[in-house]
Amino acid sequence: MAYEIVESCVNCWACEPLCPSRAIFLPPGAAGPARPHFRIDARKCTECEGDYAEPQCAGICPIEGAILNGLGEPVNPPGSLTGIPPARLAEARAEIQAR
């Protein structure tokens, strides 16, 4: 099983130095709108098993939905990183705008 980084990755580099298996890389490619994002080499990824309790890339990734687990599910689903569940979003926005 391996984790996967999808196209919502913003190339912030936070995960790359943390990977105990050195499985994360930035593929070379043309610049421009279709510029490449970080990837995980599925052959190297161990899901951090034996190294850390929490997969490191998903633990530091700042983008909800950018990293999928071995089952293809987002490890950080919507609302999990902002701390605001989607159902409460409108309410939270109104509170913030009243400041």
Binding site: V10, N11, C12, W13, A14, E16, P17, I60, P62, I63, L81
Partner: peptide
């Protein structure tokens, strides 16, 4: 220094 170890609500990690 690209990587960051915290998230601030005033920062967008897409910095380019």
């Amino acid at each position: 220094a690209p990587a960051c170890n915290i998230q601030c609500h005033y920062c967008n990690r897409k910095y380019d």
